[in-house]
Amino acid sequence: MTGDLHSWLGRKRRVTDEMAAPLVRRMAALTDRADVALDRGAPVPNHWLCMLFDDAAPQSQLGPDGHPAKGDFLPPVPLPRRMLGGRRLTYHAPVRVGDTLERETEIAAITPKVGRSGAMILVMLRHTIAGPDGLVAVEEQDIAYLEPKRDAPAPKAPPAEAPVAAWRDPFAPDPVMLFRYSALAFNGHRIHYDADYARDVEGYPALVVNGGVTTLFLLEAALRHAPGAQVRSYDARTLKPLFCGRPAELCAGTPDKAGRCTLWAEDETGAIALRIQARLAP
């Protein structure tokens, strides 16, 4: 199934964006942050890079799920459903309001797998982000393409065992939160705002909480518990979706001396939905 896709390996694309003050203002509103300055040259939290470098595909080039149609830059994977499987990100330099940034994206790997829900193909993208003074961040992002939703439920894996939590914060994602994040990132994926599509076409019981939303609010919670720290690196892995309107918790273990710690989000049953290995340091 992936034979014809391997010719896409090594393809690259460059996108330029700006850490503009209006974007920073909107992200501060979404995350309830009153401590982030909007003056040109003011520092921006590292992990807020997630709102930049949207695809911005023309409306005529969108697929039925709201994503850009496959076969332009991303390979024409013959599986219909798409989700973010995980990401690994290391920050090398700070970002400031007004910085012009360039991201080079390379299709680094295409890997077929078989999961609990059937055949899947992982497409790994490597993003290299540079700013006025050189390298800013390197990210590896795993996009998982999945078979159509089955009528019969997929076999359930045993829930991941959670470590002992040093703290727990309630997390209640609602449709407005999902809309504001999708609008900020210009993310058109319909499972995050079109409940009928999410339920009737992709088989979810409710709107799916963006993995990016959970990651953002989990990192924000970690920083509230570590005043003065920044996110220096993290490795996030999606284990199962969270659904809009259902209660969840953001949790963390005790950090080591280097600031490394395990962060995770639990759904209403106590199962881990997303897990992050992060390093927080001044």
Rank of each mutant, 00 (worst) to 15 (best):
R14V: 10
G212L: 14
P155S: 05
C261Y: 10
A34V: 07
W8E: 08
L38E: 15
T238R: 09
I276W: 00
P153Y: 04
P58K: 07
P132M: 09
A229D: 15
R150F: 00
A183W: 06
L239R: 13
I110R: 02
P173V: 01
T214S: 06
A162D: 02
L135S: 03
G98S: 08
T214Q: 11
L223D: 10
R33H: 10
I276D: 05
G66V: 01
G118R: 12
T31P: 01
A248H: 08
L79H: 07
A198F: 09
P282A: 11
E140M: 05
L242P: 01
R82D: 03
P170A: 10
H192L: 01
L5D: 06
F186T: 05
S233C: 09
V213E: 11
L84V: 09
V77A: 08
L9G: 00
A34I: 09
Y197T: 12
L223G: 02
V213C: 15
N210M: 13
L74I: 08
G41P: 00
H92S: 13
Y234C: 04
T2Y: 07
G66S: 02
L79G: 06
E161F: 08
D54E: 09
V24I: 13
V24E: 05
Y204G: 03
R180L: 08
P158K: 14
M27K: 01
A195F: 07
R275V: 05
V114A: 07
A56F: 04
A195Y: 02
D65I: 11
D39Y: 11
R13K: 14
L239H: 03
